[in-house]
Design a binder for these strands. Structure first.
Length: 159
DNA sequence: TTAGGTAGTCTCG
DNA sequence: CGAGACTACCTAA
C-alpha cells in the first residue's frame, strides 16, 4: 500500500480511512490509509457496493459479507484465507489451530495472514497467538494491533 | 524464559 | 534450482 496505489473508493471508518481496490469488478485489496492521505478515488459501481457492505459491518458487526473476492496469492495462502472466512463472527482461532486444520505449521499460517490483501472482509483479525494477540497488517505492536483490538471488541471478543 | 522445531516464501547466486 | 534468512508461532523443559 503506497502513494502510487489508486483506489476505486475510499471510505471513512472507525479504524481510519479504508481504500478499496477493484479489478474486473472483483474486490482484490483493502488498504488502511492514514488520515493525512487525501487521495482522490475514481467512481466505480462495484466499489460502491463494497463500501456499502463495509459500512454495514462497522455499524453492525453481525454482518455477513457477500462480495466477489479476488485476492492474489499462492495456493497455500488461498487455503489459509479460505479457512479464515470459516471463522464465525465473534470467535477466534489460534495460528496453531488453523495450521492443524491444513496440515501445516503455525509460522506458515502467520506468514499467510500477514499477506492477506483483504483485511476486515477476510477476517485475519480473528486469528490470535496461543498466548498473545498475534499481529496485524504486518505489525506485532503499534497502531495496527490497536485496530485488531478494535475489530475484536467490535465483535464482542475480549482477549 | 529460552531453545529448538517447524512450514512457507523470498532473495541471492 | 539450492542454500540461507526471514517471520503476525508453538511446545517442552
Amino acid at each position: 500500500m503506497n502513494a502510487t496505489t489508486s483506489y476505486q473508493a475510499i471510505i471513512p471508518s472507525p479504524i481510519g480511512p479504508l481504500g478499496i481496490v477493484m479489478e474486473r469488478g472483483q474486490l482484490c485489496r483493502i488498504g488502511f490509509l492514514s488520515d493525512e492521505t487525501a487521495l482522490q478515488a475514481a467512481e466505480d459501481k462495484p466499489a460502491a457496493q463494497v463500501a456499502a457492505q463495509l459500512q454495514h459491518y462497522f455499524k453492525q458487526a453481525d454482518w455477513h459479507f457477500s462480495l466477489p473476492l479476488q485476492p492474489a496469492g499462492t495456493a497455500f495462502q488461498q487455503k489459509v484465507w479460505w479457512q479464515l472466512q470459516q471463522i464465525p463472527m465473534g470467535e477466534v482461532r489460534t495460528y496453531g489451530e488453523i495450521a492443524r486444520a491444513l496440515g501445516s505449521g503455525p509460522r506458515a499460517v502467520g506468514n499467510a495472514c500477514r499477506n492477506n490483501p483483504l483485511p476486515v472482509v477476510v477476517p485475519c483479525h480473528r486469528v490470535v497467538a496461543a498466548n498473545g494477540p498475534g499481529g496485524f497488517a504486518g505489525q506485532t505492536r503499534g497502531r495496527n494491533i490497536s485496530i485488531k483490538g478494535w475489530l475484536l471488541a467490535h465483535e464482542g471478543v475480549t482477549l
